[in-house]
Design a protein around this nucleic acid. Structure first.
Lengths: 192, 192
DNA sequence: GGTAACTCGTACACTGGTGTTCGACAAGAG
DNA sequence: CTCTTGTCGAACACCAGTGTACGAGTTACC
């Protein structure tokens, strides 16, 4: 709130730039500042007036995406049977992953290394907590580190997004496929 | 063999460029032709004398990588218990994935869309055949399409490569983690 | 040892991006 | 109504890369 003195049209433009950037970067991770400014109905100079560099713009968009994503995830009921809770969590996060796929790529090569992982910490923690609980209740396997299980979940979801983009599966099939795969992958191995 | 008339030093240079390119692109997917030429101990002009464009160079490197990879994979014994065979296949392909990770990225944004998938068809078929056999023997699940299982395998391995790069797991741990994860993921679901 | 094939460095034209500067102009706040 | 804040377009400097042209020099081949 250091800048309570911000003219109304400036605030409007900032918002327009942010949503336009989210949109452009969502379609093409390499979208230029010109494209974004044009899409926002704003001059390129104005854009640089609010965001000192392309990188800081990408960062702002990414931060915003994480925030809205986390809000959505916050509404998921994670109580009860961990397996059911995981299904619900997948159902929600899946859409987010699909949606922010390209934006993630943009962030990965515009932002300093580690920054992306740093901003992911919040949502990650939510998943970790659920997995930990499932492990302590012997519903999820404990022979592999939790961080690995999180990574697997992450990668399977991103893989599903790729498969959709390549037209090999449809958007509807994704969630059930992911759920079926991960529940099996996370089940404790039988000591035959 | 249209070009039996190729001077010896030219052949040497082509080979040097190819291996240098594999090396550079393996470290930085965006490596420039200058970097590659320098690494090959060759002028940039010479490089363009053999490869009409950066894209064609990347393509050549990628083709070569696939070929050597396929050769390695061809030596894996895929007979016997499909689960054991899968373990062996993972053990081998895992190293390849880790090694060619960055090169894959380079290929993905230098080559026309679909080209990468096209060149991947060979190795993919090998995996598919094994999975199909496992499915027909009721060792692998049949409630999900084979192509999806292949994709999962692919993504889990790439994810492991990321985890190593981020320093969250070591190279030694990767193969057992991947194997444990995929065997569980591919096991037919119990109709509890 | 002659010749064709090849290589080299430098220089050039071109592209497509980033970030800045300028001065004229509009729009909001008090 | 005024004055500050913000916006606009066009121009500029800059950078990093790609691909080409040239001419001199070198290397393999026969």
């Amino acid at each position: 709130m250091t800048v309570t003195t911000r003219r109304a049209d400036a605030q409007r433009n900032i918002a327009a730039i942010l949503t336009a950037a989210a949109d452009c970067l969502g379609r093409d991770p390499g979208a230029s500042t010109s494209e974004i400014a044009k899409a926002a109905g704003v001059g390129r100079v104005t854009l640089y007036g609010h965001f000192p560099s392309r990188a800081e713009l990408v960062d702002a968009v990414f931060v915003q995406a994480i925030a809205t994503g986390e809000e959505t995830l916050g509404q998921v009921d994670l109580t009860g049977d961990p397996r059911d809770a995981l299904s619900r969590l997948i159902e929600s996060s899946w859409h987010l992953v699909d949606q922010y796929r390209a934006l993630l790529l943009a962030a990965q090569d515009a932002l300093p290394p580690g920054r992306v992982h740093e901003l992911h910490a919040g949502p990650m923690a939510r998943v970790e907590r659920l997995l930990e609980r499932g492990r302590s209740e012997n519903v999820f396997r404990t022979d592999l580190p939790t961080s690995w299980l999180v990574s697997v979940m992450h990668n399977v979801m991103h893989g599903a997004a790729s498969e959709i983009q390549a037209g090999r599966i449809t958007s509807d099939q994704a969630a059930p496929y992911i759920t079926a795969t991960l529940l099996a992958a996370f089940t404790p191995p039988q000591s035959e």
